[in-house]
């Protein structure tokens, strides 16, 4: 049951610089060589481990999805929305709120509440924009009336082209 002895891996030698118990005393050059070899081995292992984990860490980071920026979307037909009502439409990859305030007046805002990203809605009874999550209220200019939202909603430009409502970014 004698431990297998091979010059390449005596039990103590792999332990690195600390494992010098079996060494004859008074031989500093050997000690130096041993610690250098330990450093090289440890450094090599550390460098290769870093090279294995670097791709993994980069892989974990989701790629930034660049969507073609949207400047203008259709809000549907004029007759689809009654006065004093609103609906959510898709503006790029974010929701927008289109409101028909009266027969001729239209408004559109980003529908993302500035408080915690909930999607807001038009409340016909108060004629305000309401966020159901934390009871934030905005008026028909997008300004905060009450509740926790810190900033007003961004407003879009609305035009009626024939019988179609068109929403675009304000320039």
């Amino acid at each position: 049951m004698r431990p297998h002895d091979c010059p390449c891996s005596r039990a103590g030698e792999f332990g690195g610089a600390g494992g010098g118990s079996g060494m004859p005393p008074g031989m500093p050059p050997d000690q130096n060589r041993r610690s250098l070899l330990s450093w090289l081995l440890g450094g090599g292992v550390a460098a290769s481990l870093a090279s294995f984990f670097y791709p993994v860490v980069r892989f974990l980071n989701p790629p930034y999805l660049s969507e073609a920026p949207v400047d203008e979307v259709s809000g549907g037909k004029v007759d689809d929305l009654k006065p004093n009502s609103g609906k959510i439409i898709k503006f790029g990859n974010k929701p927008a709120l289109l409101v028909r305030v009266s027969e001729t007046e239209w408004k559109a805002f980003t529908a993302v509440c500035t408080h915690l990203n909930c999607t807001v809605q038009y409340q016909d009874s108060t004629r305000l924009i309401w966020c159901a999550c934390h009871n934030g209220m905005y008026d028909m200019s997008g300004r905060v009336v009450s509740g926790p939202p810190p900033k007003p909603l961004d407003e879009f430009a609305v035009r009626v082209r024939g019988d179609e409502v068109v929403i675009s970014r304000r320039t």
Binding site: P3, C6, S9
Partner: peptide, 22 residues
């Protein structure tokens, strides 16, 4: 039969084989 200790002798050899496999 001669015996080799698993830790660290065999294990370190195995580790080197794993490195090569990687």
């Amino acid at each position: 039969v001669r015996q080799m200790r698993f830790f660290p002798n065999f294990f370190l050899r195995e580790l080197m084989v794993w490195y090569c496999a990687l």
